[in-house]
Nucleic acid binder design. Structure first.
Lengths: 239, 239
DNA sequence: GCAAAAGTGTTGAAGGTACACCCATGT
DNA sequence: ACATGGGTGTACCTTCAACACTTTTGC
């Protein structure tokens, strides 16, 4: 009994997050993400995660990048698989969704949208902490993505995906504060980051206000916390 | 352009791990797992993870449990999604595999196999640290599953899946030692576990050799570290 | 009594938090 | 000069690893 066709379709969606500075004078950073208004049933007119069907000749990662570009015009700087959702009743037809989460700097968002030949339709950016009711189970999915982001930002270099090549420790701290939702002590933050070795000081400084701040860049040698299934992981020692 | 059929098929596989005591006099615990010998191309005669096709009317978790039972006769005590694999070239035909990892006590393995009406064919148990070359990308997948297990055992109660209802702290420590592959200080291990609140002392004691050890049971109130996408996760505080 | 595991106490190293303080620049 | 963020020093606290020590059983 070898089936070559199946009524089960595979979709790919992406939670792509960026930090946008509030237009208020104090200017705090908040987590925002683009959603797409559905133009078909099911859930017509509701907002949903950008995504699409998995192509027969593309891998999962490639499908995430492609569908994200097609619907929003964006190319993320960081992309990682989040979870596979496949409950029978999550859609009227049988769909298994492989969901990714991604990061992109807000200035890159602007640049990519300006360079896009085909400006995206039906796309709007939402504050992650004030979402409307979304199509399918997408509210739950975004909540889970934000939880993963907060858990990862501490012990890995995911913040890299939200910062330019050169940045100050205050920039990095501000990103961490926005993700974690609490203030961090500048002195202690500095020492922890420097001790972690994830960051390399450069000779450059950022001037413009008060005392110039040293510019840093990321250390490419440091691995992400979760190596993913593709890279080699250490084996169990014989002891 | 709404397709209802697709050439992409969805499979589900499970890395189910248990601890087996070595038949040597010193009797150390080692991580072992069952593999199934393939009876068809591709990779006929090679060993592979137990699994099967996703049914049109079952969720992913249910499919993992069903295919595991059908191929090995086992029902795990702990089951969690690991990763979705979908590279184009990982199989001659296009297959997306949702892979789970699972835990089961070795005495439950024996009981379930004894109770099985249909003893599983073509199943063999392998030492996780000495695997042959497996079908598809299954070697990599198992390496990743073991990495996840080691990372989770420290800060969650996954060891619960490998222990009976009542256990001594020495039992729990032995499980941790086997998974982490190194010895743990009994005194410090005791204090850490007691402080974590994941375990509740009972009035029972295990006698039989030397000084009797107090029996403990797991505290059901304590959540797993990774709540998974299904449960509610905390939202970003407004600060 | 003695061996061996259960369980307690203690110490020093390491890391995190809070906060005082100095430094360098724009205005 | 002075306000402000950059950057350093330090004291305190918690956690953890190492290991000496006491307790309780089987033999």
């Amino acid at each position: 009994m070898t089936r070559t066709e199946s009524g089960i379709r595979v979709a790919v969606s992406t939670v792509i997050l960026t930090l946008r500075r509030h237009p208020t004078p104090d200017g705090r950073l908040t987590v925002v993400l683009p959603l797409v208004r559905r133009t078909r049933e099911p859930h017509e007119f509701l907002w949903a995660l950008p995504g699409g069907w998995l192509g027969e000749d593309e891998g999962l990662d490639a499908a995430a990048s492609r569908t994200l570009a097609e619907t929003t015009g964006l190319s993320p700087s960081y992309l990682e698989q989040l979870y596979a959702f496949g409950d029978v009743d999550r859609s009227p037809t049988r769909v298994v969704s492989i969901v990714y989460w991604a990061l992109l700097r807000s200035d890159e968002v602007d640049a990519q949208l300006a360079a896009a030949v085909d400006p995206p339709e039906n796309v709007l950016w939402f504050d992650a902490s004030a979402l409307p009711t979304l199509a399918f189970d997408h509210n739950q999915i975004i909540t889970y993505a934000l939880w993963r982001l907060r858990n990862k930002v501490g012990y890995s270099r995911v913040a890299h995906g939200l910062l330019p090549e050169l940045f100050t420790l205050a920039d990095l701290r501000e990103v961490n504060e926005a993700i974690l939702g609490r203030r961090l002590d500048p002195a202690n933050f500095r020492r922890q980051v420097e001790a972690s070795g994830t960051v390399i000081p450069t000779d450059g400084h950022r001037t413009g206000s008060h005392r110039p701040a040293r510019l840093y860049r990321y250390n490419g040698d440091v691995e992400l916390a979760d190596p993913g299934p593709l890279r080699a992981a250490p084996t169990i020692p014989a002891n």
